[in-house]
């Protein structure tokens, strides 16, 4: 369904994503793992076209989405919803209106000028909130919610886009363990209940193993592992994380001890 072919992205001289070729089937829940800076986020953003690839192509159901422009590009983004580490809600706006932002791709351009949402869209947004037990918060400002609640609002925003693909960029990195479970369960539910393909960036290996049917390991911009969670042996995991650890480590590094002031007690004595 989704095919990435020879995908590259450079920022200046830094190659964030190197020659990634992948195929992801409909209905899969895929965890992209690796350390920070491994290129996971850039990869996900390229799929949604928030970042354009330097070279390579992304095919969705046979259509190269890297070539889309204007209304077609906006429709592709509508179909490939995105969830962010920082939730990216409008803090001042109430929860319902934040969810309704997911409907931008569905309202006609003329209607969107009024800034008013159709009644059916409101009902849909509310029922999405209800599925994740936060319908009672609909009228509250988003900024008053806890992190876990905010991420569920963001998931609802993605859901009302009626997407075929859900891209989650470190969705639980800003959350405590309890909210982590709530949000990961919500993503799993979207995958199982709605049959939406989910691609989720995670740096937590255990979590990725628990929730994802397939893991893709990235290091220094390249895919270094692709397989079932069971295939990810401790040795492979060490390779995946260790490879980068060696690169990041400063060979001359180490922290030198700082001289401290003489303690007052010594001075007094």
């Amino acid at each position: 369904m989704l095919e990435l072919k020879g995908l590259n992205r450079s920022f200046g001289s830094h190659r964030a994503v190197r020659d990634v070729t992948l195929e992801i089937g409909s209905g899969e829940i895929v965890g992209v793992i690796g350390r920070s800076g491994a290129g996971k986020s850039t990869l996900l953003r390229m799929i949604n076209r928030l970042i354009d690839p330097t070279s390579g192509s992304i095919l969705f159901k046979g259509v190269d989405v890297t070539q889309l422009k204007g209304a077609e590009l906006r429709d592709w983004r509508r179909r490939s919803a995105m969830i962010f580490q920082q939730f990216n809600l409008v803090g001042r706006l109430d929860v319902l209106n934040n969810v309704l932002m997911g409907r931008v791709g569905h309202v006609s351009s003329l209607r969107s000028l009024t800034g008013l949402w159709p009644r059916d869209d409101r009902a849909m947004a509310l029922s999405a909130l209800d599925q994740f037990d936060i319908a009672n918060l609909a009228a509250q400002r988003a900024e008053t919610l806890s992190g876990g609640q905010q991420q569920r609002v963001a998931i609802c925003r993605a859901l009302v886009q009626e997407p075929e693909l859900l891209l989650a960029d470190e969705p639980i990195a800003s959350l405590d363990p309890r909210n982590t479970k709530i949000v990961m369960d919500a993503l799993l539910r979207i995958n199982r209940h709605y049959g939406i393909t989910v691609i989720c960036n995670l740096h937590d290996l255990d979590l990725a193993r628990e929730y994802c049917g397939r893991l893709i390991g990235m290091a220094a911009g390249s895919v270094v592992f692709d397989g079932a969670p069971e295939a990810l042996t401790p040795d492979v995991a060490r390779d995946l994380y260790g490879l980068e650890a060696n690169e990041v480590m400063d060979p001359n590094g180490g922290i030198r001890a700082m001289p401290m002031p003489t303690p007052a007690a010594t001075v007094a004595a």
């Binding site: 997911g102 931008v104 800034g115």
Partner: peptide
Amino acid sequence: KPLEAARAAGASDMQVILHAVLPQVLP
């Protein structure tokens, strides 16, 4: 960040301004 989210949801430039920029600056 909300501008990025709106764009990622398929918002046009006009919609980004309407739904992500203006609510933030209204006060």
